[in-house]
Each structure stands twice: as structure tokens, then as C-alpha cells.
Design a protein around this nucleic acid. Sequence first.
DNA 1: GGATCTTTGTGCGATACCGCACATAGCCAA
DNA 2: TTGGCTATGTGCGGTATCGCACAAAGATCC
Lengths: 248, 248
Amino acid sequence: MKNHPEGNELLAALPQSSHARIFPLLREVDLPLGKEVYAAGQVENMVYFPIDCIVSLLYVMDDGHSAEIAVVGREGMMGIAMLLGGNSMPNCAIVQSAGSAYRLPSTDFKREFDRDPNVRMSVLRYLQALFTQMAQTAACNRHHSIEQQLCRWLLLSLDRLNGQELTMTQELIANMLGVRREGVTHAAGRLQKLGLIRYQRGHITVLDRAGLERRCCECYQVVKDEADRLAARHERLFEFTESADSAA
Amino acid sequence: MKNHPEGNELLAALPQSSHARIFPLLREVDLPLGKEVYAAGQVENMVYFPIDCIVSLLYVMDDGHSAEIAVVGREGMMGIAMLLGGNSMPNCAIVQSAGSAYRLPSTDFKREFDRDPNVRMSVLRYLQALFTQMAQTAACNRHHSIEQQLCRWLLLSLDRLNGQELTMTQELIANMLGVRREGVTHAAGRLQKLGLIRYQRGHITVLDRAGLERRCCECYQVVKDEADRLAARHERLFEFTESADSAA
DNA sequence: GGATCTTTGTGCGATACCGCACATAGCCAA
DNA sequence: TTGGCTATGTGCGGTATCGCACAAAGATCC
């Protein structure tokens, strides 16, 4: 059912009719590593649909400590708050793996979101997956070791990439997980000794994905299963509504 | 702008026209302390609008450890997942303070949600507040001491109640915060010594609210401010759309 | 090739929290 | 009153993580 095999999965899964109105408005932009797509509290006016980049939603506290709230890749979108009636983002969004994304003015997308039930259904379904991810992240933050969290994080990132390698310093990972850099060094060292990953100055290669999954906490599977479940249901639904687009 | 001074704020803030279709469907139910309104993973078919109870959304892990994801009171609703295209809740929901709630079949409310832009706007706005709360909870879990989290938790609960007293054992609070009961005992003892609260076998009386706020982390204010901001904007919007209800 | 910067590795004391065991105290019911 | 239950208080050793300081190893640039 993918109308657009390339590109963002959320957009690609839309039926033709919805597609036709939204696609002309899209512009492809490059998102370099480390770019702050949204700053916390700033008024923003664009929504983004990642194509091959990964972006982390990060909460930064007064004392400078941070915590990752969720990860967004080609399966989703950024700027949800603008659809929900805010005009600013509560968290900041940082590019974690460089790549490109479609973007369009949030008011344009909000209009389609309001008028087109198919667009709405897609976005709401993604919202549900996002909720699941956030809840799991919160619980994982609370209860699991740095090593387990690192495994989860690597796996979630890997799912959103094509290859087996990510470009990412331990310092950045530490920021995402909200732990010390040394803690990441330690955990990564152990995974490396076990032959699960190879780490070399900002480049991580996953050697044994199944091993990572075994060493990981349950959190990864929960998030992945929910995302898969919603995506599958998504495609099934559109098989029947393809011609029944009832946009105002 | 409150059409229903009593009851749930999310419903009360709806314009008359939306109200008229939804209110006849509501039934008031009692929610006793400790009741599990939703079980994780179960298929559910009701949504709830708390009137004077407080319900915690809780994530319980395989090993039995738990973490609170969010708190819902008369400002919001439960069962969001059913509007977002799931038919089950990913987390469980536990009544933390007994009281009553309106409820109606989720399919009925989903129908109104889909057809009535005013209902939709209200719910989405609440979703935004919920996102903020979840993000803050995740970060707070990661970085703040038990004592700070306890302060936050007490304040959030207090905001959703009328009096200054909550009925709640330390054991339950520990479950919500995802920490040991002894940790809560310790923190509560200190707050008591400082004269901020009084604790007596399952009854907490807040003696010095301002003191709690001072001792708390920033997390409380952030959540509260966002909720207030959205609520205020909410009421303003309906001043203009009261007569422009464009439900299909 | 050498200086410099960034990234990663390591060690050490401090601390917050955990897990457990057990003591105390308020509440209730026989 | 007595006994039993539940809720709270306390102590102790273990552990994960923190914060800091500094060393080592790649990378980069002149």
C-alpha cells in the first residue's frame, strides 16, 4: 500500500487523495548532525517528516541535565504540538543522525489535519505510538541500568537507519540518556568486549544485533511491537478507505 | 465560560452544542481507592472523565517495578488510546484518590471526537498537556531526588483535590514514584520535620503549600504552567466559536 | 612531524538508593 | 484487653551512579 516507497512512512501510507494535497507543499531539507530543529519554548512554524535522519526529542532542565523523551525517524513526524493547539514546542529536538526530511508550514499541515480524516487518522495513530515510546522511556529511565538503556537506544536508532553503523559520540549518547559520559564509556566497553558492537571515535558498528536484544531490557520490544502493530493496522485500514476520502 | 460549574473541566469547557450531544450519553460512576480502571494491554470500551477522583497512569514492568506516567483528575480524561486508534490501553490506570467520574462508551465519544471540531480541539489540547506531563515525569524520574519527586507528586495531587488532605499510604506513593517504600518514609519524615506536611497512617495533610513548592524541583511548575496556559487559551477560543459549531 | 583538539579510558571517594530485616505504633475486632 | 493486621520508622551492607581529575589514543591542521 505504500504510494511512496521512498521517503517518510507516515506520509507514504496516506491514500492518494490526501497525498495529492499535501505533497505539493512539501520541501526537502537537509538536517545536519547536531542541528537543533526545535528549541524548547520557542514559537515554531514548521512540521517535519524525517526521510533518513533521526531526531531526538530532548528535555533540558534548569541545571543543564537532560533526558531523551522520544526518538523520531522516518516512521513519524516532528512538531506534533503545533497540531495539538500549541504554537511552540515544549521540548527541544536535536538531530542525532544526519539526513534529510520533508517539511511544510505547520498551518498548512494543520489545515489538512483538521479537514482530512485520513491525515488525522494517520497522525493520531502515530501519536499513540509516541505515547507508548514516551511511557516506556520514562519507566526505563527509572529502573534500568545504563547498559540496558544503551542497548535499547542503539536498537531504536538502528531501526530507523539503513546500515549497521551510527555516527555518534559517547558524549552525545550520554546526553540523550541523561547519564554521565563515563557511564556510557563503561557500558559501551562491556558491549564491545562481548563482541556486540565496535566503537571507534564516534562510529558505532553493531556486530551482533540479536545479542544486543538479548542483553536489552524489555523496553525495546514493547515500543517496537506497538509501533509495528499500529503500522500494520494502518495499512489494512487504508485498503478500505482508499476511495472513500471524505475531506471537506 | 463554564457551562457546568460542577464536574469535569474538559467536558464543562465544551460549547453548548457539543455538550448537548455528549451529556445524555454520560453516566456517573464511583471509583473507589485502588480500583484498576484500565489493565495494561486489555481491550477496553469506556472512556472516563474524572469529577473529583484522581487516577494515575502506571506502567508496570516485567519484574514488577512500576513507574507513574501521568496523573489525571477533573482537568482531563482517561482512555485517550481509544481515540487514537488503539482499542486497548498500553498502561494500567489506578485510582489514587476515590471519587466519581463520568463515563461513556469509547465508540460514542470517538464518534463525537471525529465529527465535532470543538470536541476534537478540547481533547487535542488536553493531549498536549498530557504530553508535557509525561515528558516532565520522565525527566524528573531520571534526575531528581525522592524528596523532590514527592513534593511534585503531592502538589500535583493537591491541585486535583479540594481540601488539603490526601488519603494515601507511603507504600502506594512508592509504587507511583517507582521507588522503595522506605525511601518515601524517609523523605516524608523530613518534610514532616520541616513542618510542611503531617503524616498519619495513610492520611497526609499539607500544612505549608508554599514551602512544598520551594522544596520541589522545577518539574511541578512546568507541568502546571502548561496546563494553565492551554486551559486559558481554551476558554478564550470558545468565546468566539460558541455559535459556530460546525459538526458534520 | 609536531602541536592541538576531541574522544575515549580509568581510578577514586562520595552519595543516593536498594534490598532486607526487624522494631514500633496505630487501628480494629473478638 | 488481647491479639493480629497494617502502616510507619530505622539500621546496615551492597551497588550503581555521580563528580572530578587525569591519562591515553585518534584526528586534524599547520
